[in-house]
Amino acid sequence: MWTYNKVLQYPINIKCPNPALAKFIISQYGGPDGELAASLRYLSQRFGMPDQNAKAVLNDIGTEELAHLEMVGTIVHQLTKGVTIDEIKKAGLGAYYTDHGVDVFPVSASGVPWTAAYIAAKGDPIANLQEDLAAEQKARATYEKLIDLCKDDPDVIDPLRFLRQREIVHFQRFGEALRGIQDKLAEKKFYTTNANKEICED
């Protein structure tokens, strides 16, 4: 089970609303490499992990991704709070406004609604962890693109930099979890048939 803490993982106070930036950043909420996909991917895969380390890594990183989902939602909310219809139209958010107003809805930057097709749970721990490593790199790359697009607003860049750094740490942890499983699979299996004899299977 989870407990909600009434505090963001990293502070976000955006002084100037800017719906054009919200249109890009929402991709990390409901886009292919966003935080919703990340959290559901890891929290779903954890059930099938063969060792204690990998279960813990997926559980704890999946949990942290939920905190990141809240952060990205907060950025989008603060960037669109109190903006005029003209500003919304100018920012290219007219279509979004038609369906969602300024609520935070999981879509990609190009307006595609979130889909479970963004994530995988393959029934194979090696395949799953390789997917997770790629997902962290794709999310890092997305944050770097967003940082490029948000150059004029330090209030927005600051939390984006924090989120980018977390992708790198998570990539490291997934790599360690994968190595642990691969090492275990590569071990030679020994079968003891009686007290004096061991048979080694190559």
Binding site: K151, D152, D158, F162, R164, V169
Partner: peptide, 25 residues
């Protein structure tokens, strides 16, 4: 992780002009 985080700061610094993006955290 400390080194990784430091490295991130460095490469971010290169990407963004420091006076625009100084990290308060």
């Amino acid at each position: 992780n400390e080194e990784e985080l430091r490295n991130c700061d460095e490469c971010c610094e290169k990407k963004c002009p420091p006076k625009v993006a100084t990290c308060s955290y």
